[in-house]
């Protein structure tokens, strides 16, 4: 992909500049600001907002991955088989819950701030990872598992050395979906007073300052697209390595 090789570094440079040197872009955003109003968001440093946004997403996704993969392993063992239909129902029904609603419903129980956002991101992030991990672990080629048993690997060794590595690409797809949803939901988290890049967009919406809206929207959008792209590359590399 030739477009990618040029576009990717260019977008990364633009994103870094937008976050670290926002004032460079003042002429670009000036036409969208209200007459005489501020053009560049300066109520908080964009770098610290970006870092706290990404920290929320990383923490929630890491926790969700750990819990979801553990649950998927348990459910795909013979002892957990009775829970398989139930877990499928929960993932199907749970994913119809809008992320915004999960966020809004977390507030009455946990109050405002980063807490409810983190919980909502974690809960919602579980579902795609669990679904994909379960698919990955339950659709392994039987011949491979048989061969692993044949060379004398016990259950634990089979899981660690054969099943998990083979299921990894499918699991990564789930993690990618979950990270992308988390990035978006964390943006809305600023409506419940979590410090995220959504703050810039919300501030723009509240003061009718389209320059803020565009600035925040561009940064969040670029982060999402670049992270998504990086995870896709990682998956492609893993698939070509396992020869899938």
């Amino acid at each position: 992909m030739r477009i990618g090789t040029i576009l990717r570094p260019a977008l990364i440079v633009v994103l870094i500049a937008l976050v670290l040197r926002p004032t460079w872009f003042a002429p670009v955003f000036a036409p969208f600001a209200p007459a005489g109003g501020p053009v560049i968001y300066d109520r908080a440093s964009l770098l610290s907002l970006s870092l706290s946004h990404l920290t929320l997403v990383v923490l929630a996704s890491a926790a969700a991955t750990l819990v979801a993969v553990t649950l998927a392993i348990l459910v795909t063992r013979p002892a957990g088989a009775a829970f398989r239909p139930l877990s499928r129902t929960i993932t199907n029904m749970g994913q119809t819950f809008p992320p915004v609603a999960v966020l809004a419903l977390a507030v009455p129980m946990l109050g405002f701030g980063a807490g409810p956002t983190l919980v909502a991101l974690f809960l919602y992030g579980l579902l795609p990872i669990f679904e994909n991990a379960m698919t990955g672990l339950s659709t392994l080629p039987p011949a491979t598992i048989e061969a692993a048993r044949g060379i004398g690997l016990n259950r634990w060794q089979r899981l660690i050395r054969v099943e998990l590595p083979l299921a990894l690409p499918v699991m990564l797809t789930g993690i990618r979906l979950s990270v992308v949803i988390s990035l978006g939901t964390a943006t809305i988290g600023s409506t419940v007073a979590a410090r995220t890049l959504g703050e810039v967009i919300i501030a723009g919406l509240l003061t009718n300052n389209t320059a803020y809206v565009l600035q925040g929207g561009l940064i969040v959008g670029l982060f999402a697209v670049l992270i998504y792209d990086a995870l896709v590359q990682l998956e492609a590399r893993l698939i070509s390595r396992t020869g899938g």
């Binding site: 992308v180 990035l183 943006t187 959504g198 967009i201 925040g216 969040v220 999402a224």
Partner: peptide
Amino acid sequence: QTIPSLAM
């Protein structure tokens, strides 16, 4: 599809 909804 990856662009966060609020940004979009």
